[in-house]
């Protein structure tokens, strides 16, 4: 009888990394469909291109670095789809390729692959594109369902005349995945029900934006329903790798994301601040973890104090 000896536990739960990534892709499906409906076939093409390029780049990176091939965990595909969804449908594919390269090669693989990137790869890719190709990335795209008499300016860059229903259903210009809030909410509910994400980050972040805009005198409904807030709050800020692991850290992180979003939107020289806000908080995540991860430290000190 040849017996395996290993340390307990000898039983494992059903959760796997690839299943989690598959769930995220499923949750993104409504937004992908909405992008196709609102912005046409090119939107789907852009998403497909971005996802395949990210997967391909990851493959090549792992080969060059002589590491295990990790494309089957699905994280590269998630990054690709997310990056595409934050861009307008008429983005030139050459620009998109730069974004994919930054996301997968520079931000993710150069830092050691999944789990070691210090900021969200898709957001980093988007920010580099935003800085490098401002006009192309800020384009409003060609939404087929724009309400009558509206120029293509997006609400955050001064466009007016959108009703709440327009904002909610996606009858606005802008990034293709950010337009339809309904689709994002469907994905959000799916992720929460499947236990992939906890609702804390999205709820606190959106809540902070609403409350803070109310305080400084901006329209909270407009602030919540426009730009990339919901997509960012549900799919970007909740990225496991770059968000804190403790509940208290998570709440602070989400509040920070919300605060910086409003600050950048209203007081900085930029139309949209979600990406920057989340990336900023990504960078603060190690500090937030440090602050809440050592509960024993305090107790030991207290006990030591009593002893003396």
């Amino acid at each position: 009888m040849k017996l395996t000896v290993s340390s307990s536990p000898h039983l494992h739960g059903k959760s796997t990394t690839s299943r989690i990534m598959l769930d995220v892709l499923i949750a993104l499906l409504p937004s992908v469909i909405a992008a196709g409906v609102l912005f046409g076939l090119r939107a789907l093409l852009v998403i497909l291109f971005s996802a395949s390029l990210c997967v391909g780049l990851e493959c090549i990176c792992r080969l060059i670095m002589k590491r295990d091939n990790t494309v089957f965990d699905g994280s590269a595909a998630v990054t690709g789809v997310l990056l595409a969804l934050t861009l307008p449908s008429d983005i030139p594919l050459s620009h998109l390729a730069v974004g994919c390269f930054v996301a997968i090669v520079v931000v993710k693989q150069m830092f050691g692959g999944l789990g070691n990137n210090f900021v969200n790869p898709a957001l980093a890719g988007r920010i580099v594109m935003l800085v490098s190709f401002p006009a192309a990335t800020a384009s409003a795209g060609n939404n087929f369902f724009l309400p009558d008499g509206i120029t293509s300016a997006t609400p955050l860059s001064g466009g007016a005349g959108y009703s709440v229903a327009d904002l909610f259903l996606g009858r606005i210009g802008g990034a293709m995945g950010e337009a339809c809030k309904l689709a994002i909410l469907v994905g959000f509910v799916y992720l929460v029900v499947r236990g992939v994400i906890s609702p804390v980050i999205p709820v606190v972040m959106v809540g902070t934006v609403a409350l803070f805009s109310l305080i400084v005198g901006a329209d909270p409904v407009l602030q919540v329903l426009s730009g990339g807030l919901l997509l960012g709050a549900v799919f970007m800020a909740t990225d496991y790798v770059t968000s804190p692991v403790t509940l208290r850290g998570t709440v602070l992180y989400a509040v920070g994301c919300g605060l910086f979003t409003v600050l950048i939107r209203l007081y900085a020289n930029l139309p949209e601040g979600v990406s920057y806000a989340i990336v900023l908080m990504n960078i603060l995540t190690p500090l937030l973890d440090r602050a809440f991860l050592f509960p024993a430290k305090k107790k030991q000190k207290r006990r030591g104090g009593e002893g003396k």
Partner: peptide, 16 residues
């Protein structure tokens, strides 16, 4: 008795 091979920590916080 099968056990899956470990992969990278994604900091999901499930263990916490």
């Amino acid at each position: 008795a099968a056990q899956a091979a470990p992969s990278a920590c994604i900091r999901c916080g499930f263990c916490v």
